[in-house]
Design a protein around this nucleic acid. Sequence first.
DNA 1: TGCCAGGCCGGGT
DNA 2: ACCCGGCATGGC
Length: 226
Amino acid sequence: MKRPPPDLRDTYDRLLAAFGPQHWWPGESPLEICVGAILTQNTAWVNVEKAIANLKNAGLLDGERESIRRMLEMPDEKLAALIRPSGYFNLKAKRLKGFLRFVQDEFGGDLSAMWKEPLESLRFRLLDVYGIGPETADSILLYAGGLPTFVVDAYTIRIMTRLGVVDEGVTYHAMKELFETMLPTDVALYNEYHALLVALGKDVCRPRKPRCGGCALRVTCSNSRA
DNA sequence: TGCCAGGCCGGGT
DNA sequence: ACCCGGCATGGC
């Protein structure tokens, strides 16, 4: 760390005041949230919505166990065609099935049974599933399972790096640990905080614009002043 | 038009 | 242990 960490709780209050509640995750059921978490990998959410609409129209996000079974039985190409708007559709069809296969085989296609497993243990098992990396695992655990794990993404790292809170090249794990250490273990707080960082990132923190001059960073993060 | 989006995997150093 | 190309659509 280049400087003492800001009061991340105060930063949260400022973000909430600036952007308001984000109402994440924008999904109606745990299964839909899990599916969305995989489909949104490096993809704009608006495209994911189209893919999810296709799945709903095909009746594949209604009954949880039934939907999981039907998607698993479907040929890869057919599932890929449905999720086409979300991009990387061939890849994501396989990743989606990888996750569904895990839920099916290990928990009998019952997500509520999955959440009963201890968080750390479940997290490691999810990371072993093909196509599930740290962010997707944490998104599933927090937003679908309501378990207290902080979700880090590219925006989180960009924002914290540009504020000088962490050095460039900070790892996912270090960033996650920082938030979890500095904040109370609170699912609702983790939920809203990540969503607010994404809102801020979309606003001002693009990859090719290293400076956010005149942007909302000043408003929201002034407590980290040098 | 080109760049970007709520990553992750596999192969190469 | 890093680094990088591949994966693909749709919006601005």
